[in-house]
Simulated assay, not measured.
Amino acid sequence: MSRTAAEITTQPACWRRAAEEAARFTAAPRPGERIAVVGCGTSWFMAQSYAALREGAGQGTTDAFAASEFPRARAVGAYDRVVALTRSGTTTEVLELLTLVRAAGTATVALTADPATPVMTAADEVAVLDWADEESVVQT
């Protein structure tokens, strides 16, 4: 079995664990909050999916941006919280954006797979999903 195929078979257990941990994560966006969710590459595609699902469920306005395309003029006051998705925790555009919006007083939360990276101090709160990190070139 290929590495990618093996990783795909672990997904149901990973999603169950993520749901269990999300229920205990106090920094998760609250219903009614205006949220911007950002990422790069696959993380941006996940941000788009999350935004559509959250807004579609009536949880509040949720916009998704590639971190480099976040409208900097909205850094002050447009969002209650910015959620950053960064598997590596080192993506420059994500780290710079977190610094900008935190300085403007916006709450930040990051999801990452690596607890030994700069995102740990770049966001107010961080959820580490190191148990879900993958080795395949294309993350599943």
Rank of each mutant, 00 (worst) to 15 (best):
D114M: 08
Y50L: 13
R87K: 13
T112R: 02
P71N: 08
V83W: 00
T86P: 01
E96C: 12
A107C: 05
D80L: 03
T99L: 13
A110G: 06
G105A: 06
L100M: 15
L95T: 12
L111V: 13
T99R: 15
L85M: 07
L95N: 10
A75E: 08
R72L: 14
T92C: 01
A78I: 05
A104Q: 10
L85W: 03
R81H: 03
F70A: 06
L95P: 06
T117M: 02
R102T: 12
G60H: 05
T112E: 03
V76G: 06
T117A: 09
L85H: 01
T117G: 02
A67H: 09
A51Y: 02
A103P: 03
V76M: 02
G77Y: 11
S49W: 11
A103R: 06
A84M: 10
T86L: 05
W44K: 02
P118Q: 07
A66S: 08
Y79M: 09
A116Y: 13
G89M: 01
A64R: 02
A113T: 13
G60M: 07
S49F: 09
S49P: 03
V101H: 05
T106A: 03
Q59P: 00
D63A: 10
G105Y: 01
F70Y: 15
G89P: 02
F65C: 02
S88G: 11
T86A: 10
A103T: 12
R87A: 03
T91M: 05
E96S: 14
A110Y: 00
L98K: 03
A107K: 05
A52D: 08
F45L: 12
E55C: 01
V83N: 00
E69V: 05
V82M: 01
S88D: 07
A113N: 09
E69I: 03
A103Q: 09
Q59L: 15
G105W: 00
A84G: 08
T91H: 05
A78L: 03
R54N: 09
A52H: 14
G105E: 07
T90H: 04
T90C: 08
P115W: 01
G60P: 13
T108H: 01
A64L: 08
A73I: 14
T99S: 14
V76N: 07
F70R: 00
G60A: 10
D114T: 12
G58P: 12
A78V: 10
E93M: 09
Y79R: 05
M46R: 04
A66D: 09
A113G: 14
V94I: 12
